[in-house]
Every structure is written in C-alpha cells, then in structure tokens.
C-alpha cells in the first residue's frame, strides 16, 4: 500500500472558542492533484496552512512520508519545507516591489543563481502566464486577475515539488480560470508536483483533479474520486456540488 506523502490524523484546531477543525483525517499522495472543497469559512485554508507550518494544530498528527512531522530532524523539516510552495488567497504580493522583483524574490533570497539565470526563470514564468510587459509595474497597477497570475508565477518560479493553492482562480474571468487550470495541469504533468487546491470552482475543478475531499463542520465528510462523488449519494455532497444550501 502506498504511503501518503502527507497525512492528517485527527487534526484539531481552535481559535479561541471557535472550533475550526474537529478531527480532520486526510491523505495526500505523491504526484496527485487533490481539491479540498467546502463552504466558505469551514477551515479549508487553515488546513492548508498546517502543511506549510503557518498554523500549528492543537492536537492530532501530520505525517510526512509516514513520519510524524515533529519527529523529523531540523534538516529534514527544512528540506521538506523547501519543496513546498504556497499561493495565497489574497495573493500576498509585496506592494513596494515591482512585478519582476515579486516573482524573483524567492530565488534572489534563497539561491545562489546568477542574476541572468534568475532573470531567465522569471521571464519564462511571466511569458507562460501572460505577464510579459508588466515587469516594471507594481501590484497596485494591475487588475485583480493579473495579480493572481503574478502570485501564481511566484509560487511556481522555484520549481516546487508540492504546491498548495488557496483559491487560485478567485476573481478571474472564466477564460482566465480555464487558463490557470490548464496551466496547473500542464505544470503538474511536466514537473510531477503534488498539488493541493482549495477551491470553489465546481464543477470545473473536476476536470483537473484526481481526488476531491470535502470539508464540512470541521471534518472531512467525503474523500474520493470524481466518479465516487456521483456514486456516493451523500446528501451534503450532492447539495453542495449542486449549489444548494446544505
């Protein structure tokens, strides 16, 4: 049996009296694209932030290749975290930096790449995402959709092995949404990274992902393939996917 790349076991997280995660169990396998769906405010982003270490669980375990995260040595933790990349829901671009500097930042700060190599990598990503010509602009000078693509370019510029997407297509028009989905698929096939996508793009996301997990009321209510969704006859899932109030 394949050992999951990342496994959540009974993850609980509260903020004050607000119990966001009430025992999440979820497995993420190497090389797959998995979508986490659920109503707004159910803790999907919080769950994602546990992987990258921005949020610590109150109880439960996170296993990396079968080893509890807290048992990894400092070097192993750093090495794992360097394989990760995160795309924020609100982009989290640096307002005082140009688009070029925003995308180049992880390379400039963490690697010894020569300047021309950094430039080449950044311009390649910019071209792939239709951002050519914006390199000297600042985030505030771009539209919401373009800022989203800049955030995507920054997330992919380091060629990560695991990419965590927090609502990557929010605010994009249908054409751009499709472009972003295609790009994630293309890159995933090319670089074979593992992608975890928190999204509300239903049913479009079904064409992109191999598996879907539904978070509701602090726990994973469904985990399976697209076909499993239609076979599940789960009322909560059906009503959510159908766009009705659960």
């Amino acid at each position: 049996m394949t050992v999951p790349l990342i496994q959540f076991i009974d993850i609980m997280k509260s903020f004050g009296t607000d119990h966001v995660l009430k025992g999440v169990n979820l497995s993420i396998y190497k090389g797959e694209i998995i979508a986490i769906i659920g109503k707004s405010g159910t803790g999907k982003s919080v769950l994602l932030k546990h992987i990258i270490g921005l949020v610590q669980q109150d109880s439960g375990q996170i296993l990396i290749n079968g080893v509890p995260l807290h048992q990894l040595s400092v070097e192993e933790k750093i090495s794992f975290q360097k394989e990760l990349s995160y795309m924020f829901q609100d982009n989290a671009l640096f307002d005082f930096m140009t688009i070029y500097d925003n995308i180049a930042l992880p390379l400039v700060e963490n690697s010894n790449f020569p300047k021309n190599q950094v430039k080449e990598k950044v311009f390649t990503r910019m071209k792939q995402l239709g951002l050519t010509g914006t390199e000297k602009k600042f985030p505030a000078q771009l539209s919401g959709g373009m800022r989203k693509r800049v955030a995507l370019a920054r997330a992919l510029v380091t060629d990560p092995k695991i990419v965590l997407f927090d609502e990557p297509t929010t605010g994009l028009d249908p054409v751009r949404k499709k472009d972003v989905h295609s790009m994630i698929q293309e890159y995933q096939e090319k670089f074979e990274f593992t992608a975890v996508i928190v999204t509300h793009d239903i049913p479009q996301i079904f064409d992109l992902v191999q598996r879907i997990a539904m978070l509701d009321d602090g726990i994973i209510k469904f985990e399976g393939s697209k076909e499993d969704i239609f076979d599940s006859h789960s009322k909560i899932l059906d009503t959510f996917v159908g766009g009705e109030d659960v």
């Binding site: 990349s85 995160y86 924020f88 640096f94 930042l105 963490n110």
Partner: peptide, 17 residues
C-alpha cells in the same frame, strides 16, 4: 503592520525567508 494583515509576512515564511 499592513504586511502582517495582508499575509505578506506569512508569504515570506512560505518562501523560507
């Protein structure tokens, strides 16, 4: 402060900065 509330500081952490 603005960087904190707009998750830019978190973004630095995710980039291992």
């Amino acid at each position: 402060g603005v960087m904190r509330i707009s998750e830019q500081i978190d973004a630095l952490k995710t980039m291992h900065i």
